[in-house]
Design a binder for these strands. Structure first.
Lengths: 147, 147
DNA sequence: GTTAAATAGTTCACTTATTGAACTATATTA
DNA sequence: TAATATAGTTCAATAAGTGAACTATTTAAC
């Protein structure tokens, strides 16, 4: 099969999935947080000793963009900052009780809907899909020279 | 397998892939266009009789956001607007020669890199992956009630 | 056929997101 | 100890998004 056709199909499909998940998030997030802020909060809640640098790397954005996002989450009482005692340059980001609860609730709703979609697949199909996606991610991560 | 684990793995992998493609775009796009503007321009170049409403729907954003994007692309001479002669409300978006060339060149570079990644996969793996992704997209699209 | 409702797109005011350069503070290394 | 690297913030600017109000046009109702 031709590469262009494959990429076109991939793009069309992945765009649609992304759009749906994004719309889903916008619909289901009832507190005042945007669908851009949620992934950041989620990352902070699910990763211990998370730093701004981690987030910048994970989401492929600059550190100053992270500072702005973190400020917004902080202002809403969803996260706190904590300096490393040994390396005073480092600031750890931690979800507050409110932040954790928010992530848990939102994930629960998300999982319900996604679970509904996934019920259309055989267990084996899901496994194959995830494994291939992870393989692609691994290859892209390794294929990196300058970083 | 547990749903949460599946979703976590999916998110981690898809985030990484998205980040890599985005970084790739940022690196390879040499003209003054952002990695957000490129998908819109690409959509316009690849779809005849494309309208603002199409783009808003495809990318899951509001029509006023599209107007702003379209203005930026127009200012750069990458697209033009053309009113429908029959239904004077409709404005078709068309890529200019410059816009088409730009998409072609960028896609070529993208395909080269993506092709390199895909060479790590068997043809059958790629097919299975795309088919499963398309199935997911189809299910999510159908699962829609209000729209 | 005129009125009412729907549709396509734009404008506007506002918030959020991102960039990149300059900066502070701290650690590392030469 | 001096030079360099790292972590994070601040700042000014641009891009991107929302939602409400608006114009222009078409379609539907009566």
């Amino acid at each position: 099969m031709e590469l262009k056709e494959l990429v076109d199909r991939y793009q069309a499909a992945i765009n649609l999935v992304y759009r749906k998940v994004s719309i889903l998030l916008k619909e289901k997030i009832n507190v005042d947080i945007t669908s851009d802020q949620f992934p950041t909060l989620q990352y902070i809640a699910n990763n211990k000793k998370c730093t701004s640098t981690d987030i910048a790397y994970t989401f492929g954005i600059g550190k100053s963009a992270v500072t702005a996002q973190v400020n917004r989450l902080f202002d809403k009482g969803l996260i706190i900052r904590e300096r490393d005692e040994k390396d005073r340059r480092v600031v750890y980001l931690l979800a507050t009780e409110k932040g954790r609860e928010f992530v848990t609730n939102t994930e629960k709703i998300l999982f319900e809907v996604l679970g509904k979609y996934l019920s259309n697949f055989e267990d084996e199909e899901i496994n194959t899909f995830i494994q291939l996606l992870e393989k692609l991610a691994r290859i892209m991560d390794e294929g990196e020279v300058d970083e």
